[in-house]
């Protein structure tokens, strides 16, 4: 800000006051005080995000050579990742499974958020806490719980066996893509509910009354007023689930089996047993680019849809 233009008072007229230039700057510039307060966080985030990413990009341009690296820069890894069908297949499978889990979560969570926003009168807080509480507990344990439920000798199979409904365990339950999608949808539900709830809660009730007054029935009112106004919540809920789940590897590792493996498992393999870090870095960056691209397309499409709706 243009604080430097200030003309200093004549020092001869006011010899009593000692000039303290640094302090003067602090006192004058809010921006500087703000940046000083912000700096520890920014340093941590820079050290933890920016620099590692820069190195990740660098290493993706290197080549694995025994236990070391060939540090000459090359796009070979990217070419290889593009040529190997397994990489692309896993990438698209991950995107597909995350997409399915996202759609399922948002569709299932929307009525729930709607109910709490519009129909719960007392103890709203309790409902919100109940809906989000499981999210705060270990992700690993929630996934583990699904393994217990879906396992070959798990809750469902043994339950059905005990009641005599089946005489042989259902094998498709565990180690399948659907097992992964169900678990992801369940584990990330809280991430969907909060933004959906907030966007629904914000809607001015008199707008809904106006729509009714102007002749809309409940369905048309929902489509023409409630849904468009809650669209920001739908968008952020979708992105908040889709983006992190594409990179997930706990769920596919515990529940996916060979059919349910995702790109995250492949990345983990490159950094673990396969020990090809440059390829792991390459796959991470390709994943990031896909996520960013798809998120932008999604945002663009929802903007378009919003214009159509209103």
């Amino acid at each position: 800000m243009g604080d430097t233009a200030a003309s200093p008072p004549d020092p001869l007229l006011h010899p009593k006051r000692r000039r303290r230039p640094l302090r003067g700057l602090m006192q004058r510039s809010e921006a500087i005080r703000a940046y000083i307060l912000m700096s520890p966080t920014l340093v941590v985030m820079t050290l933890g995000i920016v620099i590692p990413f820069a190195i990740l990009i660098t290493i993706s341009l290197w080549t694995a050579q025994g236990f070391g690296f060939d540090t000459s820069l090359t796009l070979n890894n990217y070419a290889q990742a593009n040529e190997q069908p397994i990489y692309n297949a896993l990438l698209f499978r991950s995107l597909k499974m995350s997409g399915l889990a996202t759609v399922a979560t948002v569709l299932l969570s929307y009525p729930m958020a709607y109910y709490v926003a519009f129909h719960v009168k007392r103890n709203k807080m309790m409902w919100i806490v109940l809906m989000t509480l499981p999210f705060w507990t270990s992700y690993l344990l929630r996934v583990f719980a699904w393994k217990v439920v879906l396992g070959y000798e798990g809750v469902i199979n043994s339950g059905l066996l005990a009641t005599g409904l089946i005489d042989k365990p259902l094998e498709f339950l565990l180690y399948s893509q659907s097992a992964v999608v169900i678990t992801l949808a369940h584990a990330w539900a809280a991430f969907a509910i909060l933004p959906l709830y907030v966007s629904l809660e914000k809607i001015d009730r008199s707008l809904l009354e106006a729509a009714t007054d102007l002749g809309d029935g409940p369905v048309m009112r929902f489509l023409r007023v409630t849904l468009p106004l809650s669209l920001p919540g739908v968008i952020s809920a979708s992105l908040l689930i889709f983006i992190p789940t594409t990179g997930d590897y706990i769920t596919p590792a515990l529940l996916g089996g060979p059919d349910g493996t995702m790109i995250g498992n492949l990345i983990q393999l490159q950094f673990g047993p396969v020990n090809n870090w440059p390829m792991g870095a390459t796959l991470s960056i390709i994943l990031m680019l896909w996520i960013a691209g798809l998120a932008l397309v999604f945002l663009f499409l929802t903007q378009l849809a919003k214009k159509k709706l209103t």
Binding site: G48, I49, I51, P52, F53, I55, L56, I59, L239, L240, I243, P244, T245, T246, G247, D248, Y249, G264, I267, Q268, F271, W277, G280, A281, S284, L287, M288, I291
Partner: peptide, 15 residues
Amino acid sequence: LVVPGIIFGVALLVL
């Protein structure tokens, strides 16, 4: 909050 954890994990590991 939105970037997949695995990406941060491997990026930090590399650094």
